[in-house]
Design a protein around this nucleic acid. Structure first.
Lengths: 191, 191
DNA sequence: CTACAAAACTAACGATTGTTAGTTAGATTT
DNA sequence: AAATCTAACTAACAATCGTTAGTTTTGTAG
C-alpha cells in the first residue's frame, strides 16, 4: 500500500511536470492532470495537497540538486577548466534525468508563491558560485579577458535551456554531448 | 483621435507584453492588463478584439522581423564569420528594441492557437537559414569540425534568451555587447 | 452650443478554475 | 467474518475567467 501510494504520487508529479513543460503551469488544470493520469480531478487530492505544492516540489528538488552539486565542484582543488567541465557535465546529467522538471524550473518559478524566496536563494547561491569559478579562471590566466557578465550569461543560458533539446537528440551519447558542449562553449567555433 | 487611439492601442500591447513576460500569457487576466493600463477590463475591447489577438500580434510581428532579417543576411556575398556577426547583431538590436515581446515569443508561442502554424513556419525557416550559414562555414573551413547540432543549439539558445539579460545590463553599450558576444560565442573563453 | 463619435463605465453572462464534502468499491488486516 | 483503510467516485462550492450588452462621460468638429 505504501508502495502503490508512492508510485501513484510520483506518477502524478512526473505527469504534471510533462504538462507544465507543454503548456506552462497556469494553463494546466487539475482536470487536465487528472485525465492524463487516468482518474478524476478530485481523486488527485488523495495523493497531493495542492497544485502549488506539486510545482514547489518539482522545482525545489531540482534547484537543491544543482546548488549542492556546484558547491561540491567549487570546493574542489583543481584548475578552472576542469571545474567548468564538471559544471557542464552536471547540467547535462541532471537535465537528461529530468527534462520536464527543468522546463518547469526555467519557466514557472515565478508561480512558486510561498516557496519563491527559497528558490531565489538557491538560484543566487548557484550563480555566485559559478561566477566565482569564472573569476578565479580569469585571475589565474586560464580564461580570456572577456566581459565576465557576458560570459556568465552566455554559458548559463545555454546550460539552463538544454531541456529544450536533449530529449530530441537522444541518439547523441552523453559523453559525446559533454565533449561537444565543452569544446563549443570553452574553445569557440572559429578556426 | 486616430493618433490617440493608436497610442492607446500600442500602450495596451506594450503593457500586455510586459505582463506576459512577468507571469506568462495564461496567468495574465484581462483585468490585470486593464488595471495596469488604468482602465476597466471591458474598456480594453474598444481597442483590441481579444486576448488571443494581442499575443498573436506581439509574437508574429517579431518573428517576421527575425525571418526577414536572416533572409537578407544569408543571401549576402560575404564570409561566414561576417554573417554570424550580423546574426548576433540583429538579435541584440531586436531584443533591445522589444525585450518583453521577445519573452512572449520564447515562452508563450504554444498558446497561439489559430496562428500557431504560421509561427512554426517562420521559426523553421529561421532555423534552416541559420543552420545553412553554419554548414557553409564548415565546408569553407572557416568553422571547426564541431557537431553541427550542438553548435546551432548553443548559439541560438544564447541569442534567443538575451531578453532575460539585456534590460538589466543597460549600461553595457550595444557595440561592446555585440563585440563581447561575438568573441565569446565564436572564439570561446579558454586561453 | 450642438452633434457626434471615441472611449470609458457598470453589470452581467456562461464557462471554467482549484478545491472540499460525502460516498462507495475493493483490498488488507484483525 | 468483521473492521479498517486506500483510492477511486459524484456533486457541488465560491471564485475567477474572457467577453458582451447597454449606458454614460469626454473631447472635438461644425
Amino acid at each position: 500500500m505504501k508502495l502503490s501510494t508512492l508510485s501513484r504520487k510520483q506518477e502524478i508529479y512526473r505527469t504534471a511536470a510533462k504538462l507544465f513543460k507543454e503548456k506552462g503551469y497556469s494553463a494546466v488544470t487539475m482536470r487536465d492532470l487528472a485525465a492524463a493520469v487516468g482518474i478524476k480531478a478530485a481523486s488527485l487530492y488523495n495523493h497531493i495537497t495542492s497544485k502549488q505544492q506539486i510545482l514547489s516540489e518539482i522545482i525545489l528538488d531540482i534547484a537543491t540538486q544543482f546548488t549542492q552539486g556546484i558547491d561540491a565542484i567549487a570546493s574542489q582543488e583543481t584548475d578552472t577548466i576542469t571545474k567548468l567541465k564538471a559544471v557542464i557535465s552536471q547540467h547535462i546529467t541532471l537535465t537528461a534525468d529530468n527534462p520536464y522538471g527543468m522546463a518547469a524550473l526555467n519557466n514557472d518559478w515565478m508561480h512558486l508563491e510561498g516557496k519563491l524566496d527559497r528558490y531565489l536563494d538557491l538560484r543566487n547561491r548557484y550563480e555566485k558560485k559559478f561566477r566565482g569559478i569564472i573569476l578565479e579562471g580569469k585571475e589565474s590566466g586560464e580564461l580570456k579577458e572577456v566581459n565576465t557578465e557576458i560570459l556568465v550569461y552566455s554559458i548559463l543560458t545555454t546550460l539552463r535551456n538544454l531541456y529544450l533539446w536533449i530529449p530530441k537528440k537522444a541518439e547523441l551519447k552523453k559523453d559525446e554531448l559533454i565533449e561537444g558542449l565543452c569544446v563549443t562553449l570553452l574553445q569557440g567555433v572559429e578556426r
